[in-house]
């Protein structure tokens, strides 16, 4: 990926053009945190949307924001962008208060809302150009966003003529415009066909891994989140129930993880793995091996697989019953 267009166009932020100072309080969890929220509360009339939300998101992580409908995910994202004012509590994004310094935060944060509404009369290019100019970006950035989101053929089309899937792509194009340091994505793959979903998920992975973009994704499609996320925040009825890296959470909640390894030598691989003490069970079929590992031991299996890849002709590794799915039911299910 040396020649990735993302890499070549990446802006280096220096102290002269506003180096981002990350939040530091000496507290381990808050060190290098991009987002810090403490005891955040928000009420809409009679509904208490947030009842003391506390969490942090560390730099370079991809965090899943998980919870049922009405849990407070969208309200939290809107507060992080400075679109809503919290009733009480503290929130800092890149060390800034979103309500007071919202424009600065939105200049370095890309966002995709759950149900975005765009001016119907405008064309795709008009809208992207407007957003780019507000960020002080040029035509090259516009073109890159259009290209990466797969909107080249529809750049001149009116927004009113776009299907829901292409509207979602437009949202992605607007979110990745410029070089966001942080992506806030609310249901990013909603309304997309399977191929487009994979494209978007790959794009998120590229942004995260190659450009060190911090990602906070709210979604109901847990297997997809598992593909890109390395940590999670579980929220329900306006309260954060738990948060941390997937490994930490898996250990803490005794969560099961099952992976399917596609290989040319399933029997040999199975007999090799069955003797490991971190492997709970192994199931062999004609082309694959299904392995369940002890809670929190998935990284050990992953490193083992990469070591054994050549030896057993491993073609692909898929998550079967993901940790995240299991964790979701353990954390949210218990709370409910």
């Amino acid at each position: 990926m040396q020649n990735s267009p993302l890499m070549s166009l990446r802006r280096k932020r220096t102290s002269e053009d506003g180096e981002i100072i990350f939040y530091r309080k000496g507290h381990s969890i808050e060190k290098l945190a991009v987002i810090v929220s403490r005891n955040l509360r928000k009420r809409f009339g009679r509904i208490q949307a947030l009842r003391g939300v506390t969490f942090s998101v560390s730099k370079g992580s991809a965090t899943a924001l998980l919870g049922p409908n009405g849990a407070g995910k969208t309200t939290t994202l809107k507060i992080l962008l400075g679109l809503l004012k919290p009733d009480s509590g503290e929130v800092e994004v890149f060390g800034m208060d979103p309500w007071r310094k919202g424009d600065k935060i939105r200049g370095i944060v890309g966002v995709l809302h759950e149900k975005p509404v765009y001016p119907q009369w405008a064309s795709v290019r008009q809208l992207i150009r407007y957003a780019a100019r507000l960020r002080g970006l040029g035509e090259m950035d516009e073109e890159r966003a259009i290209k990466l989101s797969g909107l080249e053929r529809y750049a001149g089309a009116r927004i009113s003529s776009l299907s829901r899937g292409y509207l979602q792509r437009l949202g992605i194009a607007l979110a990745i415009l410029g070089d966001p340091e942080l992506l806030l994505l609310d249901e990013p793959t909603a309304n997309l066909d399977p191929a487009a979903r994979m494209e978007i998920l790959n794009l998120i992975s590229v942004l995260k891994e190659e450009l060190d973009v911090t990602v906070l994704i709210s979604s109901h499609i847990i297997p997809e989140l598992e593909m890109v996320c390395d940590s999670a925040i579980f929220i329900n009825e306006g309260l954060v129930l738990d948060q941390g890296s997937l490994d930490e959470l898996a250990r803490k909640h005794n969560s099961r993880a099952v992976v399917v390894i596609r290989t040319r030598n399933p029997r040999k691989l199975a007999s090799d793995l069955i003797g490991r003490d971190y492997v709970k069970s192994v199931e062999v079929s004609s082309e694959s091996v299904k392995v369940e590992v002890m809670p929190g031991e998935l990284p050990t299996l992953e490193s083992e697989i990469s070591r054994l890849g050549g030896k057993y002709g491993i073609e692909r590794v898929e998550s079967a019953a993901g940790r995240l799915q299991d964790l979701y039911w353990k954390v949210i299910g218990v709370a409910r």
């Binding site: 679109l83 919202g102 424009d103 966002v111 509404v117 001016p119 957003a131 507000l134 960020r135």
Partner: peptide, 19 residues
């Protein structure tokens, strides 16, 4: 009309409420 619909798009950009 915009405040009821597309203000979410506009105010998600680096645009201050004052502007």
């Amino acid at each position: 009309g915009e405040l009821a619909s597309t203000s979410l798009f506009h105010l998600s950009q680096p645009l201050r409420r004052s502007e």
